[in-house]
């Protein structure tokens, strides 16, 4: 559906596993790490998650990106927690973070957005009796991505207009006209959707 996305193409076991199963495994892992309080076992879990990266053949560049994102967060949390509570607590909290962030990120890297949408649509089917229409998720994703493209263009034009009036540094001078044009776009899109029978669904 979209070239956009954090998915990294591949053929590993983790790539081939069904999106629904991977998601359930992720949930189980999340529960597990809140039940386990032993730093040793949390450390083992963290190691297992880390091993998932070479298994999925995640590119070194992506891994480095992740490390650069994780280290400051973990460092900050560790320092604050050590200072406020103690070393053991700091270790447990950081290991928990490492496991959840690492596993969730691995999930996103190895799961195509399309497959995930299909899995969610299927998984949420029982909610239909409450009036939810999960089968529309795919359409919503498409509609929103197209709206992102349209609004990016509008944002660019608003920015140029702002420059032309040399009000570059004023945030409201950008935000107000951008919002007004956003709302107008929404009105026009609403009419277009109505003309294409969305009200008649």
């Amino acid at each position: 559906m979209t070239p956009l996305g954090l998915y990294q193409p591949g053929t590993s076991v983790l790539h081939r596993a069904a999106a629904g199963h991977k998601f359930l495994a992720l949930l189980a892992l999340a529960v597990l790490i809140f039940v386990v309080h032993s730093p040793v076992w949390l450390g083992v879990t963290a190691l297992a998650v880390t091993l998932g990266y070479p298994v999925a053949r995640v590119s070194p560049r992506r891994c480095l990106q992740l490390v650069r994102l994780l280290v400051p967060v973990l460092g900050l949390v560790f320092a604050a927690q050590w200072w406020l509570v103690g070393f053991d607590s700091a270790a447990v909290v950081c290991l928990r973070l490492l496991v959840t962030l690492g596993a969730a990120n691995l999930f996103t890297l190895t799961t195509r957005v399309d497959d995930l949408v299909t899995a969610v649509e299927r998984g949420l089917r029982p909610t239909r009796r409450f009036g939810v229409r999960p089968e529309r998720l795919g359409l919503l994703v498409g509609l929103t991505l197209q709206a992102v493209a349209a609004l990016s263009m509008i944002a660019g034009q608003t920015r140029e207009a702002q420059r032309a009036r040399s009000a570059e540094r004023s945030l409201p001078a950008f935000a107000v006209p951008f919002l007004i044009r956003t709302l107008r776009h929404a009105d026009e899109l609403g009419e277009a959707l109505a003309a294409r029978g969305v009200d008649d669904d």
Partner: peptide, 21 residues
């Protein structure tokens, strides 16, 4: 109309995304 509702919801979700740029 539901279409107008849907459009505003979708466009504002996109608006939040564009702010991230």
């Amino acid at each position: 109309l539901p279409a107008a509702d849907l459009a505003r919801t979708v466009v504002f979700a996109a608006f939040i995304a564009v702010l991230g740029l």
